[in-house]
Amino acid sequence: MQLGFLVDLHLCMGCKGCEIACKVENEVPLSTWRLRVKYVDIGTFPETKRTFTPLRCNHCEHAPCERICPVSALHYIENGIVNIDKDRCIGCASCVMACPYGAIYIDPETQTADKCTYCAHRIASSMMPACVVACPVEANIFGDLDDKTSNISRYIQQHESDVQVRKPEKGTEPHHFYVGAGSVNLNPLASKREEGYSLFNKITHLPLGGHH
């Protein structure tokens, strides 16, 4: 079994229900996110549109975070999930440096690395990840990539020409796919980040400890 995620961006409306469900389910502290939805505005008024991209851990087949972790705090479990043992983590932040998707953070409460685990604890109880349950338009499709009859496999078959992953050139082989994504959704260099254009400004982060 190799669990994977697919997000159909044609359906996503940026409601952030997945983000909130994740926060609540996993008790993700303030200032940090296991899953977040990025908004990018395209065009010039009045010809504008807003795109939404949920971003989470890609649970890569060749996960750089797992490879660089000096104590195996980040490790694979049998269903393909890249899980984390917070009790073992030494907080070296090498996984943060290795993850090309910016999906790993240092939990300001435990001072250890943390990230999306595809709700491994829920899956162990035969439940869907919290973000999947919360999505009002079923834009999040989750299932076994090894099973050709699973929802995700069939979705990939049906939309084969439109299925993409983030940064394929990194060779990480993500288990997280997007349908309906353009370069602005997947490539951080395809959009500007300008002061004053964010919906929220002057955001403060909780101190992470150490000297950064």
Binding site: I42, V184, A190, S191
Partner: peptide, 23 residues
Amino acid sequence: IHETIAATNAVVTLDIPLPDIFW
């Protein structure tokens, strides 16, 4: 891809990336 910005005028309006300098 950077060169497409002039055409798309794509601006990130909501993304709260994690704090940048860890090391």
